[in-house]
Write a protein that binds this DNA or RNA. Sequence first.
DNA 1: CAATCGTGGTA
DNA 2: TTACCAAGATT
Length: 287
Amino acid sequence: MSTLHAPILRWYDRHQRDLPWRSADASAWGVLVSEVMLQQTPVARVLPVWAAWMERWPTPAALAAEPTGEAIRMWGRLGYPRRALRLHAAATAIEERFDGRVPDTYEELLSLPGVGDYTAAAVASFAYGARHVVLDTNVRRVLARTVAGHEFAGASVTAAERRLAEAVLPTEDAPLWAVASMELGALVCTAANPRCGACPVADQCAWRLAGSPAYDGPPRRGQAWAGTDRQCRGRLMAVLRDADGPVHRTVLDGAWADAEQRERALAGLMSDALVEQVGPDTYALPG
DNA sequence: CAATCGTGGTA
DNA sequence: TTACCAAGATT
C-alpha cells in the first residue's frame, strides 16, 4: 500500500482543480470558511458563495460584528443553514478566545462551533501544514477500495479504518497526501460510476483485483425528503431569506399546507435560533 | 450508535 | 422520474 503515494501525488499534480481556497494567498479564515461550506455540499455550489462571503467578511472579526441573520441570508441555498450560524459563532469565538486569529492546532480548532474531526484536521493541514489524518468521505472511499477491497466505506468511521488512514499517512508532506487522496475520490474514485480507467492506482486497487464485488454491507439509508420536516423547514427559511424584513405569519402559511407540521417546523427553527419572532404574528431571520 | 439537519445536480 | 449523494457535526 505504500506504493499508493507516488502515483496519486503525480496524478494530483496533473489533474488538481484550481480552487480559490487552495491558492497560496488563501487565509486560514478562507480555508475554514471553505471547509464548513463544503460539508455535505458540492464544490460547484460553494464556489460563488465562498467568493461573496470572503469579499464581505474577509476576517472573523468582520463576520462577528454582524447579526447572525446576515450570515444566514448570505448562506443562500447551500443547505444546512445551522452551518452559517455555527460559522458565525466560530468567528465570535475566534475573536474572543484567540485574539482574532484562526487557531492552528487540531484541539483548538475542534473547540470551535461547527468544527468536528474532519474540519479540524483539514484546517490544521491545509491552512497550517500540520500532519493529521484527514478522513473525509472521499478518502474513506479511496482507502476502502484500494486497500480494504470494498466498494464503499461503512456508515461510521471504525477504529481499524482510522488506523489504516494513519498507517498510510506519509511522514513528509502529509497535507499534500490528504488533498491528493481527497481529490482522487472526488474526481475519479467516485461513489457511483468510478472512472477506474483514469485511476493512477487501478492496477493495485484491492477492490478491482477482487473483481469489483458489489457492496454487501448493511443497507445505506437514503435521505428521506418529500413531506419531511426538513423540507418544510427549508421552505420556511427560503421565504424568510428572500424577504427584505419581517414576514407575517400568513405568508409562511402559504409556504406549507400542513399547519401542524408547519408550526412544529417553525418552532424548531426558533429553537435553533435560525428564526426569531419579532411581533405578535411576524417572524424574521435573527437580528 | 442512530437520527437529524437542506439543496440541487445527475444518471 | 426517482434515487442517489456531495470536503460532516451535533445530540
